[in-house]
């Protein structure tokens, strides 16, 4: 068995729909994750246990179980109830999964802002919510950017697990092609190239955002 570079060139175009599927699942999952994460982080830091207890339970369950299990659970469990398609299950699963992690990222960022900031804002007569919106969150978002970038890259790679629920993304595509052309290493190489391409773009984008934010106001 030798490594055939020409197979890479030959089969590369077959991966394009799968590459498109991977990015769709990832982006929709991340967007959902950010929205869920924001809401959850606010609930989590709320002093009202009506909000913070559900947030804690959600984070506890998601962080304590494997993503693959969560995807299968939604796909097989909720499909029968709500009639979810595979794509809906995958994005929902990734979104819910990432929401828990992103909530903790936002919470960490909010709590890393010195208490003096809140006190200074309140001493001007601002309400808690106004102080959050005007003073704490803008600073917290900035601090959340690097760990968020990290989480987005993890989400991209995690999207490969959606192959287990029939999503025809990069990894599943490589397996399908390899089973007929027996070029496993080459097909995996193509998939790897796409993942590296995507992670490079994510990294570049986040560095760009970081430097841009660093210029407008510091620390």
């Amino acid at each position: 068995m030798y490594y055939d570079f020409s197979a890479i060139v030959k089969y590369f175009p077959f991966f394009l729909p799968a590459a498109w599927m991977t990015i769709q699942v990832t982006v929709v999952g991340i967007l959902l994750g950010v929205v869920l994460g924001l809401l959850t982080s606010f609930s989590r830091i709320s002093e009202n246990s009506l909000f913070n207890i559900p947030a804690k339970i959600y984070i506890y369950i998601i962080r304590g179980t494997p993503l693959l299990l969560q995807l299968l659970f939604i796909y097989f469990g909720l499909r029968s109830v709500f009639g979810f398609k595979a794509f809906t299950s995958a994005t929902l699963g990734l979104g819910i999964h990432n929401g828990a992690y992103i909530a903790e990222i936002f919470r960490g960022a909010i709590q890393s802002i010195a208490v003096g900031q809140m006190e200074a804002a309140r001493s001007l007569g601002m309400t808690y919510y106004k102080a959050m919106r005007r003073i704490i969150l803008p600073q917290a978002f900035k601090r959340a950017i690097p760990p968020l970038g990290n989480q987005f890259i993890i989400a991209l790679k995690d999207s490969s697990l959606a192959s287990a629920i029939t999503i025809n993304e990069l990894l599943l595509k490589s397996q399908q092609l390899a089973s007929s052309n027996y070029r496993m290493m080459e097909m995996l190489t193509i998939a790897a190239m796409f993942y590296l391409f995507y992670t490079s773009i994510f990294t570049w984008l986040f560095n760009k955002i970081e430097t841009k934010l660093a210029v407008s106001g510091s620390r």
């Binding site: 900031q117 001007l124 003073i135 600073q139």
Partner: peptide, 17 residues
């Protein structure tokens, strides 16, 4: 608090402004 100003030991200026 509108009528009672406060100046802190560590300034607590808003760094993003």
């Amino acid at each position: 608090r509108i009528h009672v100003g406060m100046v802190f030991q560590h300034f607590n200026l808003f760094p993003h402004m």
